[in-house]
Design a binder for these strands. Structure first.
Lengths: 233, 233
DNA sequence: TAGTGGTCTAGACCACTTA
DNA sequence: AAGTGGTCTAGACCACTAC
């Protein structure tokens, strides 16, 4: 931003991306070798490499040793979503956040949860249902299962005051994550807790986390009508 | 994989991530300086830096000049979704893909589309409706608007044979993307084309792309019941 | 087997930011 | 003002793979 004399790798990334966008390098084309690009741009090969690494990660180009770098012909649309802690999400919009524990009980693991965890072994799990509110209106109904083998501490937590969501996020880092989005029709407890008519279309976010191969928690967050998830890249 | 003697930056990344997961470095903790870590691990500072850059990108740590590196206390759940070309998605599942053009016409830009594009200027747009099928069953109903100022070539394309989706992906790289997910109740043409009962909950993927600030296309993809989007990290 | 990307190192200097 | 991350460079060697 201050008129550097040297090119940073982000500059190089942007320059090459620009050339791809304006078709200087068209889809399928082979790009010059890193070395030649570096020469042409007046920087070190390392710098070009770092830029290329990024373009490759994004999916714009494909790199192969000896094969060189090619502009991808069928770029996938890749979008990164941040799923924040619900309290934050609400508060950042300037709304008032509230949380209600609905139920909490240790139960044997149902088959559906075992399937999500991907473990054949039934374990003791804590089943927690809770409601997140925004400006006193139902916002997200959360149906969560927590593996008490992996996370025995959760049994000591007063879930009436602390959302399991937040406690886990702060205390149980995970190494593997699975996220799914889909739509369901409101019915039964979903409709009841979210105070919507049965049949209403609701977006569901289902998340499961593991540490190593050991399951931590799986949660189904049923959002209020109108809820959107968005990402900008 | 071949028992290198030297540490690669991915090794360093994994090592530090492991330390964070096992609480050697707990949330909120300050990590050693890059230099010290490098010394301890027996590699160059550059290598540690590259690893840290990645952990920072993922959202596991936060770095500040002079402030040092800290383990984030409230990690966001971050998931990257690849939204493939529909044909690919279907074929990769081993199903038969088919495509039907429903309508295609140049129309003045409706307000809703201008809002999505974020442009105050009405432009000429091509309005395309199409249906993607998987094993002869409706899969995705796509309602698309293409800016003919940015993309005049689209008018020459035979959309009865080629899906606008694919043509655009192959021929119109974008520099900016907006993606939204939400749920709607099937009704009207959505219900009709997808052959579902009115009221059924459907997942909608809405995508808008720009090149620079110029809009290219915006598309609302209404998916068949049961459709899921998933990501694993 | 030669060419190309992948990575490391060591040293240097810059830029931000907090103490 | 000093400390810490951010980045560049130049050179070296490695590893994969297309030719």
């Amino acid at each position: 931003m201050t008129g550097q004399s040297r090119l940073s790798w982000t500059d190089v990334r942007d320059e090459i991306q620009a050339r791809i966008l304006d078709r200087t390098y068209a889809p399928g084309d082979k790009l010059p070798r890193d070395n030649d690009l570096a020469l042409g741009l007046g920087c070190a090969r390392t710098t070009v490499h770092r830029a290329m690494q990024e373009l490759s990660r994004i999916g714009l180009v494909e790199r192969k040793r000896k094969g060189g770098t090619h502009v991808r012909t069928d770029p996938v649309t890749r979008a990164t979503f941040d799923i924040p802690i619900t309290r934050r999400e609400v508060e950042q919009r300037g709304s008032k956040y509230a949380y209600q524990l609905i139920s909490s009980a240790v139960e044997p693991t149902p088959g559906s949860v075992m399937a999500r965890f991907g473990t054949p072994h039934p374990a003791e799990v804590l089943h927690v249902k809770a409601l997140h509110l925004s400006d006193n209106r139902p916002y997200i109904f959360e149906d969560r299962w927590i593996d008490t083998t992996t996370t025995p501490d959760i049994l000591e937590v007063d879930l009436a005051c602390n959302s399991a969501n937040e406690w886990l996020v702060r205390n149980k880092p995970y190494s593997k994550l699975d996220v799914r989005f889909f739509a369901i029709n409101a019915q039964g407890e979903n409709a009841e807790h979210l105070s919507v008519a049965a049949g209403e279309a609701l977006l569901v976010i289902e998340r499961t986390t593991w540490i190593g191969t050991a399951p931590i928690t799986t949660v189904r967050s049923v959002t209020a009508p109108g809820y959107q998830l968005s990402a900008q890249n």
